[in-house]
Design a binder for these strands. Structure first.
Length: 1128
RNA sequence: GCCCGGGUGGUGGAACUGGUAGACACGCAGGACUUAAAAUCCUGUGACCUCACGGUCGUGCGGGUUCGAUUCCCGCCCCGGGUACCA
């Protein structure tokens, strides 16, 4: 009788869920084992057959470890914030919260169909406020932390503030952005704003201007890996570089630890290698080359910000262009403008609103305004004026008096009004309020009251301001984002080069005497200053070309050597010789100092450059031929190198650095390729930053104010400007305390710590409870794709280390062992339509008639079996096929073409796990995915072999039930053969799971069932142990048969059987007998026969005598239990 | 270019520390059962030579180490992944 595997699976999945079989707790005496999958991003397309591969493997390990007595944490959740969800939502015209919820429901259903043992009570959804609350909380901690380079750990920022107060900037060595030095007394006399400006340069979550990839079409900034060849990965839109104020995470502070700790991780070498390369540590020295005094240098200082800002958008006042730090007298506001009583962010945001309100005044407002306008009562009033974060109804600036008509702005509550008055009072304003009724019923007394208060107020805000200007802001379109954007980017090397010298970084300080020129990046800030009059034109032209060449052009262009002489010379620190300074675009502005000392004999790029421009190539290595190419050897003895002569490069390295440092020409230095991680996205669908700006200073929210939820917006489309969609949500952005940050966090924010949340997913008081964290600690096995090698896996390690430093977690590394599952590729099928007809020709017939012109068309793989097309299904598949005719092959079949491609809808090669499950059942899918090949290997999905696995499960079933469907299992003593089969299976499966070789254990099960079938095994004890062993792979079938045997409880709670060597031992072994390494025949001998006896027996064997053919053996090699080799 | 993987029948793959290459499965061929088909079961299935017994060759290519190499070493070719003027 045929079992219904689909029904069986559904039955037990329901039961498991009802009985919460997979729910686990940290309150356990058992040892823990944490198995983690990289949680999916729930896209609209649902799961295809490639997705569950890793999940099945981790599920097998989880179930196996549980049988082995571990308390196994195996959770699942969803990475739900990010651009794809936002894009999908925009496309479908729906809200990302809705589409995300639906996609998650669909994913969950699909995952549950496969029968995973997830503890769903620990489900984590990164977009859920109860989760992102803690993502924001971690951000706040990053914000309020700095990295102490002396202790090599993160510490609270207050520690740094104290150090500054005691000893100025010299008192603390912290990982920071560049800034001027200051003393303790300077620190103390700084304003809060200035202090916070300095602190920002130390925070682990900090703001800075940076070049970002701005994509006009997507209306967002993209990560480097979202940009391919100068185009966006999604949609292929052009991407341009822009300078924007962005949030960053100071991952570079951890570069050394991220690199060093890789060593002890059980990850594949390739994975570690990728991270190593990404971190890109290089050791060497930074060196100063003084500029030759003969250079015609213009040493005037940098243009001031105002001058630089000359091309800011029209409509910006001078104040907004960079002078807003000057403090206006008499006001605690400190905005320093005549009537701009808010910071420029608020101002620009409010202006359109205020204007709108001016044109739409309420009747009572209009009445009052008529009486107040044009100094009618002797004082200048302004209407709907912006003060700090508020738009007030009427204000007299000279008296700092505000008049508000309640209920006229919006339906504000009493508390709101009071809060507002309070905030304004702090700024020195008095607020008087009138109700609509007062205005309507007794206008004269309202006006006289205003007049009276005005006269009595002594405060005169504008007394100190001689240039009172009455200017109405009309026709000005302010955009808040422009303030975030730096229109005239500073050179990337700002501050790195001094006035009279060029600083270079080199990994080969030993080759210092081989320097024959310096090369600067075209963007290097000194270029302009050092260029001679004669070279000016050429240099400017070159710089212009280099600037205009986009990343894309640089990539696609065949490498060519280009550069130009600046006309300037530097002085070689040792020889004192004049060295020409060139610029060339092979030098990158963003790495090192943006300048290199060129050693053409040792560096191929320098060599090429020197050859191309006829620059000297001094020899510094004895006996090394550099006529054709550079030779980077460190082995040769050095010549022409002064004090380094006679040393090898290896020896010279240390010597050179020592002397360089001694003479003060530079110092030993380590450089990393790793950059700080950009943490700002101009998107809607991400975690909002818990940050409020006041006077352009970023202040963190109090943790008690978390979660800061996204405002519900109808229109979250990109603004088309480099500003976040959130900037459109005025009511959300404006708070009594200040204005919210409108950027959101990137996709990797939530995924950088989700593995911690699973430990204690529902904890409302902490991101993870101490008790739960100290029990689960870290991930024992992490399974996921290699695509996250340098993104997620690096960020997660960084966050873990930070949380470790701050004492929130107990391990410095999150993932002990990492396994990368290979990608499942699609296997596309093709049909061939003869051009101009409805005839489709079989692949093999086409091969025989290559002269036929055909169109190759993708055909749905679900109507193809073993590459044979189901022709009737093909006719109904698509309307245009209904008249299809076929040219069959000799067997009368239509054979399709095959190609391996990525799985995608458009190629009709997507196989849905649901379809497989409804036809074969979940266990067949699970076992087949494992049977396909080694987990780590990428391979095409091919449903062709699935029958074999399905057949196996039916054979297993038949061991338990006869043809009538009656249980035939008996309680008898197991035979020796049965025991041997069982125990060698247990042994092999155990070994296989431990080394993650799942494909081989599937074949082991097949061999086992084949043997037991042959042995006609009906033995209860044998079959029961087999079920336990099999249950990680085929949990539904195992559970059903487990209960059929009358066992209690669930099979997951059984104990994995122990194998016994005695049962496995064979009494006799078939020895292969080889002559000169070639096997000729086999002889069966007792397994425990000693070596000498084996030798004697074999030598006496008649076949041996025959093969020796009279010759005498030179040597006989006997490997007991293995083989015999006779050398003639 | 550099750094990692990998190359085994018609196909997916197995061979774990150097010890019978091709387990297991698909496919294919033949057979049994059936009116027939499906399902199921049995047999065969690396290539070549041979009626057969048996033999020769064979793990990308060329060398080497070894009694013995898919496995270790050297050189080369091809495929996949990562990364790229990183000084």
């Amino acid at each position: 009788m045929e079992p219904n595997f689909t029904e069986i699976a559904a039955k037990w999945q329901k039961k498991w869920a009802e009985e919460e079989v997979y729910k686990v707790s940290h309150k356990s005496d058992k040892p823990k084992y944490y198995v983690l999958d990289m949680f999916p991003y729930p896209s609209g397309a649902g799961l295809h057959v490639g997705h569950p591969l890793g999940y099945i493997a981790s599920d097998i390990v989880s179930r196996y470890k549980r049988l082995k007595g571990f308390n196994v944490l195996h959770p699942m959740g969803f990475d739900a914030f990010g651009l794809p969800a936002e894009q999908y939502a925009i496309q479908t015209g729906r809200h990302p919260a809705d589409t995300t919820r639906e996609n998650i429901a669909r994913y969950k259903e699909q995952l549950n169909n496969i029968g995973f043992c997830y503890d769903w009570s620990r489900e984590v959804i990164t977009s859920d406020p109860s989760y992102h609350k803690w993502t924001q909380w971690i951000f706040l901690n990053l914000f309020s932390s700095w990295f102490n380079l002396d202790s090599n750990t993160a510490e609270d920022i207050s520690v740094l503030e104290e150090k500054f107060g005691n000893g100025g900037s010299a008192a603390a060595k912290g990982a920071c952005s560049e800034h001027e030095d200051f003393t303790a007394s300077q620190w103390i006399s700084m304003t809060e704003k200035e202090q916070r400006g300095i602190l920002m340069k130390y925070r682990l979550a900090y703001q800075d201007y940076a070049t970002v990839n701005w994509c006009e079409a997507l209306g967002t900034v993209l990560a480097n890996d979202e940009v391919k060849d100068g185009l966006s990965e999604r949609g292929g839109h052009p991407v341009e570089k822009k300078q924007m104020r962005q949030w960053f995470l100071r991952i570079t502070a951890y570069a050394e630890r991220l690199l060093g700790d890789l060593e002890n991780l059980d990850w594949t070498d390739s994975m570690k290698e990728m991270q190593k390369n990404w971190i890109g540590k290089s050791e060497g020295a930074s060196l100063r080359f003084e500029l030759s005094p003969s250079n015609s240098m213009d040493l005037t200082p940098d243009p001031s910000p105002q001058e630089r800002g000359g091309d800011l958008p029209q409509g910006f006042s001078a104040q907004e262009r960079g002078e807003n730090s000057s403090v206006a007298g008499g006001s605690s506001l400190g905005y320093g403008t005549k009537f701009h009583l808010s910071d420029s962010r608020a101002w620009s945001l409010f202006i359109p609103r205020a204007k709108k309100m001016r044109s739409e005044m309420t009747p009572s407002e209009s009445i009052v305004w008529k009486e107040l306008r044009d100094k009618k009562i002797g004082f200048k009033f302004r209407r709907q004026h912006i003060i700090d974060q508020f738009i007030v109804d009427f204000v007299c600036l000279s008296k700092m008096l505000i008049v508000e008509i309640d209920g006229s702005i919006h339906d504000s509550s009493k508390e709101y009004d009071e809060g507002r008055s309070e905030e304004l009072a702090k700024l020195g304003f008095e607020v008087i309020r009138f109700t609509n009724d007062e205005v309507n019923n007794d206008l004269p007394s309202v006006i006289s009251k205003i007049k009276e208060v005005c006269s009595n107020r002594a405060t005169s805000y504008l007394d100190d301001q001689p240039n009172i200007g009455i200017v109405e802001e009309e026709g000005e379109e302010y955009s808040f984002s422009h303030l975030n954007e730096r229109s005239n980017p500073l050179p990337p090397n700002e501050g790195r080069a001094g006035m009279g010298y060029i600083e270079v970084f080199t990994t080969r300080p030993d080759t210092i005497f081989g320097v024959s020129f310096l090369t600067l990046a075209p963007e290097h800030e000194l270029v302009e200053k050092i260029t001679s009059k004669e070279q000016k034109e050429a240099v400017e032209a070159y710089v212009q070309v280099a600037k205009n060449r986009s990343e894309r052009e640089r990539m696609s262009e065949v490498k060519r050597i280009s550069g130009v002489f600046t006309g300037a010379y530097a002085i070689h620190p040792f020889s004192g010789e004049k060295i020409p300074v060139w610029i060339g675009d092979y030098v990158l502005a963003g790495y090192g100092t943006g300048a290199v000392m060129a050693v053409p004999c040792g560096d191929q790029r320098d060599w090429d450059f020197a050859k191309h421009f006829g620059l000297p190539i001094p020899e510094i290595n004895e006996g090394v031929d550099i006529s054709e190419a550079a030779d980077p050897t460190k082995e040769a003895k050095m010549i022409n190198s002064d004090f380094l002569n006679g040393s090898t490069g290896y020896e010279a390295m240390g010597k050179a650095i020592a002397v360089i440092e001694e003479k003060g020409f530079g110092k030993g230095k380590v450089n990393f390729r790793l950059r700080d991680a950009g943490f700002s996205r101009q998107r809607y669908w991400g975690e909002p930053f818990p940050i409020i700006y006041k006077d352009e200073v970023a202040y963190p929210l109090d943790p008690s104010e978390l979660p800061l939820e996204l405002p519900i917006m109808e229109d979250f489309k990109p603004t088309g400007k480099p500003e976040s969609p959130l900037s459109k949500a005025n009511d959300w952005v404006l708070t009594p305390k200040g204005m919210r940050e409108t950027d959101t966090m990137p996709g990797y924010a939530g995924s950088s710590w989700y593995f911690l949340r699973y430990m204690d997913a529902k904890n409302p008081d902490s991101f993870v409870g101490k008790e739960a964290e100290s029990y689960w600690q870290d991930v024992d096995l992490y399974i996921g794709g290699t695509e996250h090698a340098v993104g997620h896996l690096l960020y997660a390690r960084f966050w873990q280390k930070f949380l470790f430093d701050r004492g929130f977690v107990s391990k410095a590394e999150p993932f002990k062992k990492l396994i990368n599952q290979g990608m499942i590729l699609g296997r596309s099928n093709f049909v061939y339509r003869v051009v101009g007809t409805d005839k489709y020709i079989s692949k093999d017939m086409l091969d025989a008639h290559p002269e036929l012109k055909t169109n190759t068309i993708h055909v749905d793989v679900n109507i193809v079996q073993n590459d044979i097309l189901n022709t009737s299904a093909f006719k109904t598949w698509r309307d245009e096929n209904k008249n299809a005719e076929f040219i069959f092959n000799a067997e009368g079949n239509y054979l399709c073409g095959v190609e391996v491609e990525k799985m995608s809808k458009s190629k009709y090669n997507v196989v849905n796990p649901d379809d497989i499950i409804s036809y074969f059942g979940a266990d067949t899918l699970r076992m087949y995915e494992m049977f396909l090949g080694p987990l780590e290997q990428s391979k095409p999905w091919n449903t062709n072999g699935i029958e074999g696995v399905h057949r196996f499960l039916k054979k297993l079933w038949n061991l338990f039930f006869d043809d009538q469907g009656d249980l035939k299992v008996q309680d008898s003593e197991p035979t020796e053969n049965e025991l041997r089969t069982l125990h060698k299976t247990i042994k092999k499966v155990e070994e296989d799971v431990e080394r993650f070789s799942f494909n081989t254990s599937v074949s082991t099960f097949m061999i086992c069932v084949n043997e037991l079938s042959e042995q006609k095994c009906k033995n209860r004890r044998i079959l029961k142990d087999l079920l336990i062993t099999l249950s990680p792979y085929a949990p539904h079938t195992a559970e059903e048969l487990w209960h059929a045997l009358g066992e209690q409880g669930f099979v997951v709670d059984a104990i994995f059987p122990k194998w016994n060597e005695d049962f496995i031992k064979e009494s006799s072994i078939s020895y292969p007998i080889a002559f000169n390494g070639k096997t000729r025949f086999n002889v069966s001998l007792a397994a425990d026969m000693p070596k000498q006896d084996v030798e004697a027996t074999i030598l006496a064997h008649e076949d041996t005598i025959k093969w020796l053919d009279g010759a005498s053996p030179k040597k006989i090699i006997v490997v007991p239990g293995r083989m015999v080799n006779i050398v003639i």
